[in-house]
């Protein structure tokens, strides 16, 4: 009996280790190639760590390429999207959480449907609409599009956070003469700060990862976001593996930071409308 349970414990730990290895190996390899000097890349083959590590690729990418610009553009787009979405979705999430109203069913259905249909089918029409307004090849255009795409999911997420706060709090404030909006702003919002932070994190991560619309809407180098810049770099200089992977490591940094930040809320985030992958 004893031996059997020890065996099960060991098997359990080994299985967990296997999952961790599978999850981390690609990222480890990315880092490994990024720090391998060019002269060792082909000679040392599949060694797990180069005999000599260097940061020359990072140095090149940071100083002699456009990646800092792409990084800044992506930061602007993702940051603005996250802030605007959070403001809009805390309002609409509050409406869904606290009010019973006639249009609610339709609002929820509309928001769920936007999560269902293939966004790729909007690529052409959105391009056609934004183009005469001068919003293609512009970060503003991307922010508008990303904001709309993320609002429904963020609304459900904020709603779930508001649902966790007792109604009596603002009712008490309203009996004392405050309007509902004042109660919302001064009592409910401060209590939802963790939820707001989580929403910011989720939307930032989603906007940071978006690929198809930034490929379609952005063409020049000046306004390119990180995915656009990285993919055009890959197709142009497809032999500079070290530099490509160094750039990849850079793209990973904000994503990992935000991941640590929102880790506690993963379950709530993934089940809110169960959409964002």
């Amino acid at each position: 009996m004893r031996a059997k349970s020890t065996f099960l414990t060991i098997a359990h730990r080994l299985a967990i280790l296997a999952y961790i290895a599978f999850a981390l190996f690609p990222l480890f390899w990315l880092l490994k190639v990024a720090v391998t000097p060019n002269d060792l890349l082909y000679t040392e083959g599949v060694r797990l760590w180069p005999s000599r590590a260097s940061f020359e690729h990072f140095d090149f990418v940071l100083r002699h390429s456009s990646f800092p610009v792409f990084f800044r553009n992506s930061l602007i787009v993702s940051g603005s999207t996250a802030v605007i979405v959070t403001v809009l979705s805390s309002l609409s999430g509050y409406a869904l959480s606290r009010f019973r109203f006639r249009g609610k069913y339709w609002l929820v259905t509309l928001m769920l449907l936007t999560q269902m249909f293939p966004l790729v089918m909007l690529v052409a029409p959105i391009f056609k609409i934004l183009s005469p307004m001068g919003l293609t090849n512009s970060l503003t255009g991307l922010v508008i599009v990303y904001t709309a795409f993320n609002v429904p999911f963020a609304t459900f997420l904020m709603q779930s956070f508001f649902d966790g706060i007792p109604k009596d709090l603002e009712e008490a404030a309203m009996i004392d003469g405050a309007t509902q909006f004042v109660a919302f702003r001064q009592i409910i919002l401060p209590l939802t700060l963790p939820g707001i932070a989580a929403t910011l994190g989720f939307v930032f991560t989603a906007a940071w990862s978006e690929l198809l619309f930034s490929l379609m809407l952005i063409s020049g180098n000046e306004q390119a976001t990180f995915p656009v810049g990285l993919l055009s770099f890959v197709s142009k200089f497809s032999v500079d593996f070290g530099q490509m992977m160094a750039a990849g490591v850079l793209a990973l940094i904000p994503a990992c930071l935000f991941f640590l930040f929102i880790q506690r809320y993963l379950v709530q985030g993934l089940t809110a409308g169960a959409v964002k992958g």
Binding site: I16, Y19, W29, V33, S209, P227, L231, L252, A255, Q263
Partner: peptide
């Protein structure tokens, strides 16, 4: 352990794609 195994979720999809394309590439991938 949980944080580590959930990490791939946070990797941007374009990077996940490139990363695996490189892993499958005999020049740099194992």
């Amino acid at each position: 352990a949980q944080a580590l195994v959930f990490l791939p979720w946070a990797v941007p999809s374009f990077l996940a794609g490139l990363n695996w394309a490189w892993l499958f590439n005999p020049v740099v991938g194992p």
